[in-house]
Design a binder for these strands. Structure first.
Lengths: 327, 327
DNA sequence: TCAGGAAATGAATACGTATGCAATTAAGGG
DNA sequence: CCCTTAATTGCATACGTATTCATTTCCTGA
């Protein structure tokens, strides 16, 4: 860090005190128009920017929000990240990016969040453990789980209406005349997986249908393998619902590579509506997250002083079915 | 920001001075084993973390690296981001994420970088203007353009060997017996576009071939449109080289939708080798970036005090051709 | 013109940490 | 056991800014 321009230097050039300089850059402070102009001019000339470290230190308030991502496998998350940074920027916050390899938020990452006393943490994808939740609680750092619900942690959650969406998907497939069904899931324990599984199988049961459930991990490769095995083991069904678009692509490709026609022989539905789903090789029917509203609500939960430290709220927001060529 | 645990409180509990606490957390400082143990114990008990704001302030040195991304359209970048965060974490740096909408780095974003006096900036994708470069120079913030070269800015650049890679691709297509060629480009002015275009057309010329050049913008949609137009206008060639994999997918799909067979009728090559390229609908021949080495070199350029402020170095690193089903 | 109140300003201080300096303790050698 | 030297330690200070409080300036109306 090079020698930086300080408020004192600006003050000297503008012929005022450091206090006045500070006031010009603190909204709500009382400064005369004349002083403001002199200060801004001097600041411009010297290229002055308030030092955020000194500012956060004295104000005991951070302007950083921690954004925790697990990976880059699912294109859905980078997209949400963009929304977050854009919205937070408007509110004067910057983003501290934590990109953890593991499913679990590592202690090292927690350290970084704590060292900067971030104003809040958004945890995407990563399954937060109770230990992590305890840490965040202990240091009174507001946190919200994005697209995940982990009961018992007491953390806020903002998620899609997975269960009712899955029910809607089940009804759609039934209406299309399907008689046998498969659900290809995500990582064991992930709430998105659990909720979609529950909604799908329960709705099917309500209509008198069963459902084959295959294990997964949210990856394309596993989707492909599941699709291949379904064919090879002769357990192909009329309809397949994949927990994410990414897995649906894998299933689709396995089917296509083996001559199984979609939607003629099998109807396929995904979840997420990432960009690729509208591409012609897939043209996948899927359920779109209400990303904008999910982001807005997450930020609201983090920054509203009334709610940020209150008991964890769990929100399920309705998205929108996207009917395309696979149904 | 809640009342935090300070070094003073730790000192009191451990029965030592604040200085000693600080020394325990400053590597290279001289502390007796006994004191260290007492302090660490007290720190653990209280959940103490050094305040990064106070630390950066007094040390006049930031532990943040700014990571500037333009968008999320190309999955290649999230992948590189992950590498950066992982490597920087090892070196004790955290990442300040700037996700700018525009091609141009906005003043607002620059402000954030300057307020935190970041130790360095990685600019991905975004085409840095001279004005931006001047700003960074003026405030002596080391910067590196990742996957872009902008001559005249004096900024460091770390890029793939685009030109020679494009030559290699040209030779490959010639060896496959192609006689007519098309290059589908990226955004006008982007160095990746310019260099790949140059290498491809020059190598073709050296072998006595011409090349149809179509404009693009790095997106799938434009790739698709170009592919469709090539067919509809009857200007289909034996070979097509797309500036990125993403555009290649668009071209591929436009061809497939219109019954043009790849690789039988047309050979197609992309650039980037993102994950999707190995999926079965594409199985795209492409050129892989040496991402790991590019990231490592970028970080080296930023943090090596000898080079970080020196004249801009421009590096082109060799990648690797990936031969798959489209050639 | 002047009194009185509001608005604006400056001086001083605090935020939590790293570090130079002086003082103290420990270590080692005879 | 004492002297010399090295290793630790504590005190005090500085980093750059926001804010309290006292003081000064400005404005308004009579």
């Amino acid at each position: 860090m090079e020698k930086q321009v300080t408020a004192h230097e600006v003050a000297k050039l503008a012929g005022v005190s450091q206090s006045s300089v500070s006031r010009v850059f603190t909204k709500g402070a009382s400064v005369s128009e004349k002083t403001r102009k002199q200060v801004l001019e001097a600041a411009e000339q010297l290229g002055y920017r308030p030092n955020e470290y000194a500012r956060s230190l004295i104000m005991r308030k951070s302007s950083l929000i921690g954004l925790v991502m697990k990976g880059v496998s699912n294109p859905y998350y980078p997209h949400a990240v963009k929304k977050f940074t854009a919205e937070l920027k408007k509110l004067g916050y910057s983003v501290l990016l934590i990109d953890t390899d593991d499913v679990e938020l590592q202690m090292h990452d927690i350290d970084a969040l704590l060292s900067y006393h971030v104003a809040g943490v958004v945890i995407m994808d990563a399954t937060a453990s109770f230990q992590t939740a305890e840490m965040l609680k202990r240091f009174r750092i507001p946190a919200v789980l994005f697209n995940r619900v982990v009961p018992g942690t007491g953390l806020h959650s903002v998620s899609c209406e997975n269960e009712s969406a899955a029910r809607e998907i089940a009804r759609l497939l039934i209406a299309r005349g399907c008689k046998s069904f498969t659900y290809v899931g995500g990582r064991e324990g992930a709430s998105t997986h659990i909720e979609r599984l529950k909604g799908f199988t329960e709705e099917l049961r309500d209509h008198g249908f069963g459902c084959q459930v295959l294990p997964g991990d949210f990856t394309y490769a596993t989707g492909y393998r599941n699709g291949a095995e379904m064919i090879e083991s002769g357990r192909l069904t009329d309809a397949v619902f994949a927990v994410t678009d990414l897995m649906a692509y894998g299933i689709f490709d396995a089917f296509r590579d083996r001559g199984v026609l979609i939607p003629e022989q099998v109807k396929l539905v995904g979840f997420d509506d990432i960009e690729m789903s509208s591409w012609s090789p897939y043209n996948l029917s899927t359920y779109a997250h209400p990303v904008d509203r999910m982001v807005a609500l997450s930020i609201e939960l983090l920054l509203d002083s009334e709610r940020s430290h209150a008991a964890g709220e769990v929100h399920y927001l309705p998205g929108e079915m996207k009917l395309r060529g696979t149904t």
